[in-house]
C-alpha cells in the first residue's frame, strides 16, 4: 500500500482489508463494441468491458464522457429516451440484453438502479419499500420484506418506529439509503448506481460507501461517480471514460482504460488516465 500512497496522495485504494480474489472474474455483463446513439449522434462509441459477479465496478471520467449512458444500458433505462438506441452487444449471463425476446420490465426486475438525486415516492417509508415487490405481484409477507430490505440498507434502526411516515420527511442521506433499500426489496442481482452520493454531504456519503462494501457480498454493483476518491475507496475495478472529438468535430465518449482499481490508480497504462487521476485534466 505504501507505493499507492506515494503515487497519489490522499487516495486510499480498496486493498487487503477487504480480502477477495478479484482475479477470478465471473462475468455478469459482457459488453462488446457497445455504441449508444441519441438519434444520429453517437454519445458513446466502441465500449468493451466485462463486469464481474459480486464486484464493485466504478465508472469514472469527466462530464459528458458517456459513463451514465453506458450504465443506463445495463437495465435498459435508455429505452425510455425517445431516439436512444444501442448498437453492439451486451450480454447478461450470456443472454443478449437487447435481444428481441427480452422484456425490459423483466430486465429491470433483475437489475436495480439507484439515481443521482434521491427519488423516494411521496408515500410512507413502508410503501416505498413495498412498492417494488407489489408491482411484481407479491402480496404476502410484505412486513418481512420491508424489514429485511431496510436492515440490509442499514436504515432499519433509524426508521423502524416511523414506517408510516412520509419518506420525504427523511434526510437526504436517509432518502438515498431508502432508495437503495427499495431496490434491494425487489431482490435484484445487480444494483446500478448513478452518482449516488453527488447530492449528499460527506457523512451521508461515507454511510453509503460503507453500505456498498457490505452489499457487494451479495450483489454486483456498478457505480458511476464523479468522485475519483470514491472510486478508489470502494471499487474493485475501475473504468475510465473520456470525451473525444473526432475528425468531423463531433464529441463522443470512449472507454480509455478498464482494469483493477489498484492498477488504475497506481500504474495506469494510458497517459490520459494518469492525467485525469492526478488532477492534470478534468
Amino acid at each position: 500500500m505504501s507505493e499507492i500512497g506515494t503515487s497519489i496522495p490522499n487516495v486510499t485504494v480498496r486493498g487487503p482489508e477487504v480480502p477477495r480474489n478479484i482475479q477470478a472474474l465471473d462475468p455478469v455483463f459482457n459488453v462488446s463494441g457497445l455504441s449508444v446513439f441519441y438519434g444520429d449522434y453517437a454519445a458513446v462509441r466502441g465500449v468493451d468491458m466485462v463486469i464481474g459477479n459480486r464486484e464493485i465496478t466504478a465508472m469514472i471520467g469527466p462530464s459528458g464522457c458517456g459513463k451514465s449512458t453506458v450504465l443506463r444500458c445495463f437495465n435498459r433505462m435508455n429505452d425510455l429516451i425517445p431516439g436512444a438506441r444501442a448498437a453492439g452487444k451486451i450480454t447478461y449471463h450470456g443472454e443478449d440484453l437487447y435481444g428481441d425476446h427480452v422484456d425490459p420490465i423483466e430486465v429491470r426486475r433483475r437489475i436495480g438502479m439507484v439515481f443521482q438525486k434521491p427519488n423516494p415516492f411521496p408515500k410512507s417509508i413502508y410503501d416505498n419499500i413495498a412498492y417494488g415487490p407489489r408491482v411484481n405481484g407479491r402480496k404476502k409477507g410484505m412486513d418481512g420484506i420491508v424489514e429485511e430490505a431496510l436492515t440490509k440498507a442499514a436504515l432499519w434502526d433509524e426508521v423502524k418506529d416511523k414506517l408510516k411516515q412520509n419518506a420525504l420527511s427523511l434526510s437526504g442521506g436517509q432518502q438515498q439509503r431508502l432508495c437503495i433499500a427499495r431496490a434491494i426489496a425487489v431482490r435484484p442481482e445487480v444494483i446500478l448506481m448513478d452518482e449516488p452520493c453527488s447530492a449528499l454531504d460527506p457523512i451521508a456519503t461515507t454511510k453509503i460507501e460503507d453500505l456498498m462494501q457490505e452489499l457487494s457480498r451479495d450483489y454486483t454493483i456498478v457505480i458511476v461517480t464523479h468522485n475519483m476518491q470514491q472510486a478508489a475507496r470502494v471499487s474493485d475495478r475501475t473504468a475510465f471514460f473520456t470525451a473525444e472529438v473526432d475528425d468531423s468535430g463531433v464529441r463522443h465518449g470512449r472507454l480509455v482504460e478498464y482494469d483493477e482499481t489498484s492498477r488504475i490508480f497506481t500504474n495506469p497504462s494510458d497517459k490520459r488516465t494518469e492525467d485525469y487521476i492526478t488532477g492534470r485534466f478534468g
Partner: peptide
C-alpha cells in the same frame, strides 16, 4: 417529476403501473 417515473420503472414496474400508482395519485 420524471425522477418518480424512472424510480418506478427501475423497480420493474410497467408503464401502466407507473402511471396508475405513481403519476395519477400525485
Amino acid at each position: 417529476p420524471p425522477s418518480i417515473r424512472e424510480g418506478s420503472l427501475a423497480l420493474g414496474a410497467t408503464q401502466w403501473q407507473t402511471i396508475y400508482r405513481q403519476v395519477l395519485p400525485s
